[in-house]
Amino acid sequence: SAVVMEEGSPGEVPVLVEPPGLEDVEAALGMDRRTDAYSRSSSVSSQEEKSLHAEELVGRGIPIERVVSSEGGRPSVDLSFQPSQPLSKSSSSPELQTLQDILGDPGDKADVGRLSPEVKARSQSGTLDGESAAWSASGEDSRGQPEGPLPSSSPRSPSGLRPRGYTISDSAPSRRGKRVERDALKSRATASNAEKVPGINPSFVFLQLYHSPFFGDESNKPILLPNESQSFERSVQLLDQIPSYDTHKIAVLYVGEGQSNSELAILSNEHGSYRYTEFLTGLGRLIELKDCQPDKVYLGGLDVCGEDGQFTYCWHDDIMQAVFHIATLMPTKDVDKHRCDKKRHLGNDFVSIVYNDSGEDFKLGTIKGQFNFVHVIVTPLDYECNLVSLQCRKDMEGLVDTSVAKIVSDRNLPFVARQMALHANMASQVHHSRSNPTDIYPSKWIARLRHIKRLRQRICEEAAYSNPSLPLVHPPSHSKAPAQTPAEPTPGYEVGQRKRLISSVEDFTEFV
């Protein structure tokens, strides 16, 4: 048969007729292969192709491409040299491709048809291009793949890379869960390890502090508590009631339409708007009261037996805890006409967050109470924005700035309102402590230090009264110190430094 060459192609190359033996071998191979691939376009007849790359030819070592076609129900084999250009295909004639002069020997084609199974398996396991790669995943090629499931790999992101949580363990979102698992493993320790309690022994800490320079003076030496005195035992138990972190309780009120001037209507609300609910979820963490331990979680007086509701929101960081007394989460009882059960919590909070959804101005004093010092007013606006402002009593104007209003988005509203309420509550605590000038409020841990110092002074006084020969370590507060001759004046800087060093040991009130 003659071949018409394309323009620009090399000279004529004689194409030899395939021997009958080659056709029989390739026909047997075509019957084993699956003929249901995917359909081509209507211009080209339905056909199945599979590209198999052999590394070497037997005796020649030339890479070839073998295409199996099922045109007219008769499979045909096409061998081509890759750099050459194939002729145009037609549905009426068999596929013809040019070969190099080196394939002119018909014996070479017979060798190609009689490829060993080793070469076929190696060509099938190679990388296939384009559409033949999808075909190689079918059941027909499963014989050339190794048996057994593939090893499982770690989760992959859409980009093909490992997620960040699997790369950096410290930033993994499941870090707290692993800590819980470690605690569970520790709890399952053997009885021999049960006595080993991690941490620092208080006796060891005391020993280090006792021999430090801070205890060089007799006034700073630790003293032993009497065991037989019940009054001192009660004082030590009272110390446990003062937490070592700051605590805040903040009221949250929802004002519906037409309720801006009605205290009873505001306290009777059992739910609010959708934006109000989203605002609550951002204030803190939802907790169930019956599962809380009052000595570990500050509840601000809420009952854990269901008297004040089942849930509330709280927030904490390293040095403070805040609980929100939310009116809509507290039960509304029919027998309580004046809502006294709610007001006994909300009316005693220094700061209230008022979500004013009424469309009218909310005035300070609508919720009557002796300790309502500051109101954080949240007014929802259009386009997911809110107006946040402050209202306070006249005696609080020096501590709280009420002249600045803020426009905040719904997303950042819980954070801004919480921070403003916490700052206002700190100012309210300082303002409330002014009624007792001898006990200015600095912080909870300073209050613990003052309680310890008062307890020490009482013990020293009782020891001096029981044994008059012992001198008083600290003179009583009601006694007057003996007159001392004025010492020589020293520079102001040295006096300030000495006073600062003494105050650092005794108390921190002056620095606050």
Score class of each variant (00 low, 15 high):
residue 491 P to S: 10
residue 358 S to T: 03
residue 403 S to Y: 04
residue 438 T to P: 07
residue 269 N to V: 01
residue 468 P to K: 11
residue 400 V to I: 08
residue 414 P to G: 07
residue 327 A to V: 05
residue 476 P to F: 11
residue 348 N to Y: 08
residue 270 E to L: 04
residue 257 E to N: 05
residue 315 W to M: 05
residue 417 A to R: 00
residue 477 S to D: 15
residue 422 L to H: 02
residue 348 N to W: 05
residue 217 D to R: 08
residue 473 V to F: 13
residue 420 M to K: 02
residue 391 Q to F: 03
residue 388 V to M: 03
residue 471 P to G: 13
residue 365 G to A: 11
residue 262 S to Y: 03
residue 336 D to N: 15
residue 280 L to R: 01
residue 335 V to H: 10
residue 354 V to D: 01
residue 425 N to W: 02
residue 397 E to H: 13
residue 437 P to Q: 06
residue 483 A to R: 08
residue 461 E to N: 10
residue 338 H to E: 15
residue 225 L to H: 11
residue 308 D to F: 09
residue 278 E to T: 06
residue 235 S to C: 15
residue 504 S to Q: 11
residue 450 R to V: 04
residue 436 N to G: 06
residue 296 K to D: 15
residue 337 K to I: 10
residue 460 C to D: 14
residue 224 L to E: 15
residue 429 Q to W: 13
residue 286 L to E: 06
residue 346 L to N: 05
residue 496 G to T: 11
residue 340 C to R: 15
residue 447 A to Q: 14
residue 219 S to P: 13
residue 311 F to I: 06
residue 495 V to T: 14
residue 473 V to S: 08
residue 310 Q to I: 11
residue 238 L to H: 12
residue 378 V to F: 00
residue 275 R to A: 01
residue 228 E to V: 09
residue 449 L to Q: 13
residue 473 V to T: 12
residue 232 F to S: 07
residue 428 S to T: 05
residue 438 T to K: 15
residue 231 S to N: 09
residue 458 R to D: 15
residue 397 E to N: 07
residue 492 G to T: 14
residue 242 I to H: 04
residue 431 H to T: 07
residue 360 E to T: 10
residue 495 V to L: 10
residue 233 E to M: 09
residue 373 F to E: 07
residue 411 R to S: 09
residue 251 A to I: 02
residue 217 D to S: 12
residue 316 H to G: 15
residue 343 K to T: 13
residue 237 Q to A: 12
residue 405 A to P: 14
residue 421 A to V: 01
residue 325 H to A: 04
residue 470 L to T: 15
residue 326 I to E: 05
residue 322 A to R: 01
residue 369 G to D: 08
residue 359 G to C: 04
residue 488 E to V: 13
residue 357 D to I: 00
residue 388 V to S: 00
residue 232 F to H: 06
residue 486 P to T: 13
residue 230 Q to T: 11
residue 401 D to F: 03
residue 327 A to W: 04
residue 365 G to K: 06
residue 311 F to A: 06
residue 335 V to F: 13
residue 413 L to E: 00
residue 407 I to V: 09
residue 255 V to L: 03
residue 381 L to C: 04
residue 470 L to Q: 15
residue 248 H to N: 05
residue 490 T to N: 11
residue 501 L to S: 13
residue 408 V to E: 01
residue 274 Y to I: 08
residue 305 C to K: 11
residue 374 V to H: 02
residue 361 D to K: 06
residue 249 K to C: 14
residue 476 P to S: 15
residue 460 C to A: 11
residue 504 S to N: 10
residue 306 G to Y: 06
residue 241 Q to T: 09
residue 424 A to G: 04
residue 492 G to C: 13
residue 360 E to S: 10
residue 491 P to W: 08
residue 463 A to L: 09
residue 300 G to V: 04
residue 402 T to I: 07
residue 341 D to W: 09
residue 235 S to Y: 15
residue 256 G to A: 13
residue 398 G to C: 11
residue 263 E to L: 03
residue 390 L to V: 15
residue 220 N to H: 13
residue 495 V to F: 13
residue 482 P to T: 13
residue 364 L to W: 15
residue 223 I to T: 09
residue 281 T to W: 08
residue 293 Q to F: 09
residue 328 T to W: 01
residue 475 P to K: 12
residue 293 Q to R: 13
residue 366 T to S: 06
residue 280 L to Y: 12
residue 330 M to L: 06
residue 480 K to A: 15
residue 251 A to R: 05
residue 328 T to A: 02
residue 249 K to I: 06
residue 497 Q to I: 09
residue 438 T to R: 09
residue 335 V to L: 08
residue 232 F to C: 11
residue 408 V to Y: 04
residue 375 H to D: 15
residue 424 A to Q: 02
residue 264 L to I: 12
residue 280 L to Q: 01
residue 388 V to A: 01
residue 363 K to D: 13
residue 433 S to E: 09
residue 364 L to P: 15
residue 443 S to I: 15
residue 218 E to R: 10
residue 255 V to K: 01
residue 439 D to H: 07
residue 438 T to Q: 10
residue 371 F to M: 14
residue 352 S to R: 03
residue 275 R to I: 00
residue 418 R to S: 11
residue 398 G to N: 06
residue 348 N to C: 15
residue 270 E to P: 04
residue 332 T to N: 15
residue 451 H to S: 09
residue 359 G to M: 04
residue 264 L to K: 14
